[in-house]
Computed example of a mutant assay.
Amino acid sequence: MPGRIQSIERAAAILRVLAGGTRGLSLAEISRSLELPKGTTLGILRTLQHVGFVEQDDETGHYQLGGGVLRLGSRYLDGNELRTRALNWADALAGRSRESVRIGTLHEQQVLVVHHVFRPDDSRQILEVGSLLPLHATALGKALLAFDPHALPEYVRDQSELPGFTKRTLTEVADLEADLSRARIGGWAAEIEELVEGEVSIAAPIRDRRGTAVGSIGIRGAIERLCDGRKPHMEQVSYVRDAARAISRELGAGPW
Rank of each mutant, 00 (worst) to 15 (best):
V51G: 10
F53E: 08
Q56Y: 11
D57A: 12
D57Q: 10
D57T: 07
E59C: 02
E59D: 08
E59N: 07
G61F: 00
H62W: 13
Y63G: 09
Q64H: 15
Q64R: 15
G66I: 06
G66D: 08
G66H: 08
G66K: 08
G68W: 13
V69D: 03
L70I: 03
L70K: 12
G73F: 10
S74I: 02
S74T: 06
R75F: 11
Y76N: 06
D78R: 14
G79E: 09
G79D: 05
N80F: 14
E81A: 10
L82F: 04
T84M: 15
A86N: 02
L87M: 12
L87D: 10
N88R: 15
N88S: 14
A90K: 01
A90F: 00
A90M: 03
A90W: 00
L93F: 01
A94F: 04
G95M: 13
R96E: 10
R96Y: 07
R96F: 05
S97Q: 10
S97V: 04
E99H: 08
V101T: 05
V101Y: 05
R102P: 00
T105G: 14
L106I: 07
H107G: 02
E108N: 15
Q109D: 13
Q109V: 03
V111C: 04
L112V: 03
V113W: 03
H115Y: 10
H115E: 11
V117L: 12
F118I: 09
P120W: 06
D121Q: 01
D121A: 00
Q125M: 14
I126K: 13
E128T: 13
E128I: 04
V129K: 08
G130L: 02
S131L: 01
L132R: 13
L132W: 06
L133Y: 03
P134C: 06
P134E: 05
A139K: 14
L140K: 04
L140F: 01
L140A: 00
L140C: 00
L144F: 10
D148L: 00
D148S: 06
H150D: 04
H150R: 08
